[in-house]
Amino acid sequence: MNRLSRAKRSPASGLWKDGLKNAKMQRNLFLLLALTPAFGGYLLFTLYPNMLSVYYSLLNWNGISEPEFVGLSNFVTLFQDKYVWRALLNNLFYMATVPIAVISISLLLGYLLANKGYKGTSFFKVLFFFPNVLSTIVIALLWTFIYDGSFGLLNDFLRLLGVPIGNFYWLGEARTALAAIVPPYVWGGVGLYVIIFMNAMTTIPKSLYESAILEGARHMTILFRITIPLIMPIVRISALFLILGTLKGFEKQLILTNGGPAGATDVVGLYIFNLAFGTENHNYGYASAVGMLLFVILVTAKLLMDKYMPDRSVEY
């Protein structure tokens, strides 16, 4: 396009040439002014720190004293650090529970809203989406109120039903705290996927459903045999996002339990965060080494999912 317009103007008199040179200078000035702040900021605040973190992982440094180069010794420590593996195991737990819960609830709700034509569908849609606009801190605080032992909503309910729960602190006991963090993630995440799946479902031709119904198929059959296979590519991408998100995410754990009690809810992201910014001794070098491990896991997870998750785009 540009080449064409330049060619058109090429039989240039001196005046044309001056004008062209002027326009070119103007364009370059525009590009310089337009791109420098944002792209420069990107290089400075995103790319450069990411590359630097590789170097940091080879240091023994608490952030204040003189950094000491220690080679790969952080990585040796890393493989012997049982806290890292405990955190990773917790990550695995969330990876297995949160995406499955979010996707199955969203698929069911999305299917009902997209296909059943109930009254109030648009109201449900809006209501279901609402938690997605709330901030992490508000959602997390809401759930600390729910889980509180003495006055929490959950125990109030159980007492009302006559369950002798006493003052059980759901987030304070190692055997419940891990699982108790799943509902806040699900509560805050479902609405977005309901909308995504609903949009995908409305693109499926109605005729497919009609013939199935004529043949006497039931809704569950239709959902599992027609709807889900047809929107599989979108389910797959959603799963990818959710799995990578739970691998990286740690804000809710930070606010709800800060990894406690006794590390029962610690995840890798939170472990790194506390090594670098926590209340105890800081270790920037070791934290960066754990970060490198997380990076490798994330990239591997992504590649594995690309390779092994069914990616049959169905024709209809």
Partner: peptide, 30 residues
Amino acid sequence: QFKGRKLMWALIMLSLFLPGINALIPQYVL
């Protein structure tokens, strides 16, 4: 259209592969 545009896009796309958490510490030091 300008020289280096493709390179800039490639560098920007790189951010999709970077988990934010690795940059937190060097970013803080910076």
